[in-house]
């Protein structure tokens, strides 16, 4: 009787143990990271550090390619918004002509670029911006007449800055780079892009 009970318990234990073993999927994310660590090499401004050390947004968005749950998304957006730095001098508008150059420039931070070279924003890669530039992508929405349609109230100005600075402050896991947050564009450059979007003289608003 006693033996039987012991036997019973060990069968039960074995069953639990084997279920646990079967259920545990190998950690492919960890294996992928280890593999990439071994196989990639820093080159120019594209460093291993920036590839291997994901921040919270990168980690969450990688793990959930189909999108975050609403609660998780909200939380991420709040954290990203809290980290947005607005211009200290409260001057948001630069020169739209420089902004246009930044929007056209697709260079910067690639392994083929020089360290310390000026980064572009490459807006046209994904957005329609002006009528004249017909070579534009469509991963992002059209921004043609962005300012004309929205005006330039303080709310719009602040929102636009936030969106350029950190697109995920308003849209978790957005595909748009976090230009300010990740230091891709300087404050001056962001101001110029602001002017490209909002200045009435900008080709975007013609």
């Amino acid at each position: 009787m006693k033996n039987l009970r012991v036997h019973h318990a060990s069968v039960l234990l074995a069953a639990i143990f084997s279920t646990a073993v079967v259920a545990a999927e190998p950690d492919y994310a960890k294996a992928a990271l280890e593999m990439m660590k071994a196989d990639f090499k820093s080159k120019g401004p594209a460093t291993m550090e920036r590839m291997v050390q994901q921040d919270e947004a990168q980690a969450q968005c990688s793990a959930n390619p189909q999108g975050l749950k609403p609660k998780q998304a909200k939380k991420l957006e709040q954290a990203q918004l809290a980290a947005v730095k607005y211009p200290a001098d409260a001057q948001y508008m630069g020169d739209w002509k420089n902004g246009e150059k930044i929007a056209q420039n697709g260079r910067g931070m690639q392994s083929s670029d020089a360290v310390g070279s000026v980064n572009g924003g490459n807006c046209y890669a994904c957005h329609q911006m002006s009528k004249a530039e017909i070579s534009f992508g469509n991963i992002g929405p059209s921004l043609y007449q962005y300012g004309k349609l929205r005006g330039s109230s303080p709310e719009i100005v602040k929102y636009t800055w936030g969106k350029l600075y950190n697109a995920q402050a308003y849209n978790a896991c957005s595909k748009m780079p976090r230009f300010g947050h990740n230091g891709v564009l300087t404050e001056e450059q962001l101001k110029d892009v602001m002017a490209l979007l909002l200045d009435v003289e900008s080709p975007v608003n013609k």
Binding site: M35, S62, M109, V184
Partner: peptide
Amino acid sequence: KIFYYRAGSHD
């Protein structure tokens, strides 16, 4: 996993 791995200066 590599296909969906977001990182770097541009995410």
